[in-house]
Structures are given as C-alpha cells and as structure tokens.
Design a protein around this nucleic acid. Structure first.
Lengths: 188, 188
DNA sequence: ATAGGCATGTAAGCAGTTACATGATTTA
DNA sequence: TAAATCATGTAACTGCTTACATGCCTAT
C-alpha cells in the first residue's frame, strides 16, 4: 500500500483537500502515481484515523466548505520508514503500446490517430511540467538551484516528468510517421 | 480488463505456455504491461474458455509437460475490437520517484543507493531490448526494416522500451549525482 | 545433498475502478 | 436553463497480489 506515501508526499508542501489532491493525481503522471478520486478520499480518511495527517475544516463562502490536510510528525516518520525499505519495481501499463505491438494485425489508421492524440497529450503535460520547473527554481538557473535550493525533491521528480513526456511525444510521432508511410492496408 | 489483450499480443508470434509468458511479463516493462504469474494462468484459462486462445499439451522428457497457447480467429477479432476502442490513459506507479519527490525530508544516502540500483536495472533492460531489436531486424538496417519489414509491431514497441530505459537510467544517474553532491545530511 | 529451474494451479485478502448519490454556485 | 466546477462520500464489483501447495529434474 504505497498510495499513502504518494499522498503524504503531495501534502508536504501544501495543505490540500481531497478534491484538490484529486486534481493533482488526475494529471496522473504528475507524481508518477496514478489514483482515482475515490481512492484519495478513502485514503485520507485512513491516514487521518492513523494520525499520519491532520484535517482541518475550511469555511468558504460561495462554495462548499472543505477539509484540508497536513502531514503530522508521525506522517513524516512513516515516510522515512517507506524510504528505507526497498522500492517496489516500477509498474507500467499502457494499452497504446500493446496496440502498436500488435499493429501488423490491425487497422493501422486507428492506431495512428491514437498515437497523434497521445503525442498531443504528452506535449500538453510537458508544457505543464516545464512551467512548474520554472516556478520552482524562481530566478535561479537550474544548476544553481539544484546545488543550493532548499527543496529540490519536486524539481527532480518534475525533471523525470519532462524527460518521460518528451520521449513519449517523440516516440508517438516517430511511430505514427513510420506506420503512415507504409503501404496502406485499406484499399480505396 | 486489458490484460487479456496484452496476453493475446504476446502470443501472436510464438506459442507460449503460462510459465513462458510469466517470464516475459516478469521483465515487466517488456510489453509495457506488468502482470504477476498467477494472473497469467488465470487469464489463459479464461481466454481458453472464451475461445480466444487454443491450448495444446506438449509432452516433454526430463521436465514437466506444458500447455502452449495460440491465438484463434476469435482472438484476432477481440484484438481488432480492442484497437478500435479509445485507449485507457497510461498508468504508471513508481515508488522511487515518490521517494525522490520527498527526498528533502529523508535520509539522502538510502535514496541515492536505490537510484544507483535502478540505473543498473535500467541498463540491463536496455541491453536486452537492444539485442532484441537487432534480432528482429536481421541483416537490414533499422530504416529499411521499418519501411519493408512484414512484422514491425514488436520492433516499434521495443524502440519505446529502449527510449524509456535509456531516459530512466540517465535520470537516475543525474539525480543521484545531484543528491550526492550536496551538503551531507548526516553529521559524522 | 541442496538449490534452482520447470511447470501449474488454488485460496484469501487487499487494492483499485465504476456507478451511484447529493447539493450549492458560477459560467455560458 | 443547462452545463461545469466545487466538494465529499458510499457501495458493489473487479482486478491484482501474496501465500500456499505440489512435484520432478538438473546442476553444483
């Protein structure tokens, strides 16, 4: 159960409500941990009753009240224990690559369209991550920030996001070009 | 339930037993679909009773007999239907990146060691994928193979694997260097 | 002799997804 | 007035993981 650690990690810098957390996790690859909103509400409840986060009601006008959560001392301890343990292997599941793998038996046009769509998404996420990095490093250049910055964890994970999305976009475009450039499989 | 499509995809080129499939999926990122052995035995049973694969007993000497599976016509139809549908978004879960995200609150040395270990793994997988690509394209160069080859799906998905593992390795090494080069967080 | 690989499964439990439910406010 | 956003949850189901179970053969 490592969702809890992803949630704790997301709450380190900001107090967030379940709804706000859900938006961050919806971007999904953001923290390299995908999770559905319902999981987050459930996990926050569990974390709170375990004393790893503390919730506080925020009264709002014009919109429903919300409960925001902070990591407690015990929560930090939980993170430390998590870091000490051997990490589970990376888990990845991608239907699109499965389709490409089997593409010689399929209608190529559909897969090409899906590759373009994925490339577009990857580009959008790349832009988001790059904007985030600029925000995090402020007026320092990257090198100085990584040498002297106080909080570099989110920057380093953001760099992973950029790399990943950039490669994803390029692979999709290259693959789409390759498939589109071959003998068409649907007769006119 | 898209595990079934990953399994069908893996069975397109070779007849495989549950055990052999498990080894392929254990490499995990191989087909970009992680799955545990027990899932595969269960899924093969389901696919067989649905008529999407056909199993055949292979008698062996010196080792236990096995049942190998082939994709049926109905199985190919299932794959075509799968390809036509919108792909589910990429799913990724990586404990190591979560640790890096929270690294400013943790013992750095442990995380650095885990980054080196991951870099090593990524390098090993990269080598495997590259060997596979050479085998697939035979005596053609990549460009010609992608233009003229009959079965390019596995090659294209293999290219994704190479890109991904290469980026993973470089990000791990860069991140480890960055963390190790900062002021030590454990007093002598 | 013992460890590791080949080979297939069952059963129990936990994690994750999908559908349902509610209701106010703002924007188009 | 309809749709989107904010906000939080429950319930049912499906998918995934872990532990258990068995047994033969080969290599060290």
């Amino acid at each position: 159960m490592a969702l809890r650690h992803a949630v704790l990690g997301a709450l380190l810098d900001d107090e967030l409500s379940g709804y706000e957390l859900a938006k961050i996790f919806a971007v999904g690859v953001a923290n390299f941990w995908h999770a559905a909103p319902q999981q987050l509400y459930a996990e926050l409840a569990r974390l709170e009753s375990a004393g790893l986060v503390a919730g506080q009601e925020v009264v709002q006008r014009g919109r429903p009240n919300k409960r925001v959560f902070t990591v407690t001392e015990a929560g930090l301890g939980e993170l430390a224990a998590f870091a000490a343990a051997a990490p589970k292997p990376l888990l990845i599941r991608d239907e699109l690559i499965v389709k490409v793998h089997t593409v010689d038996f399929l209608d190529t046009a559909t897969v090409v369209a899906q590759l373009h769509e994925r490339a577009r998404e990857a580009g959008a996420r790349l832009a988001l991550f790059e904007k985030m990095l600029v925000r995090l490093r402020g007026d320092l250049d990257e090198e100085s920030f990584l040498r002297e910055g106080r909080r570099i964890g989110p920057y380093l994970s953001g760099l992973a996001g950029c790399r990943f999305q950039r490669e994803m976009r390029e692979w999709c475009l290259h693959t789409a070009r390759t498939l589109a450039g071959r003998a068409p499989d649907r007769p006119a």
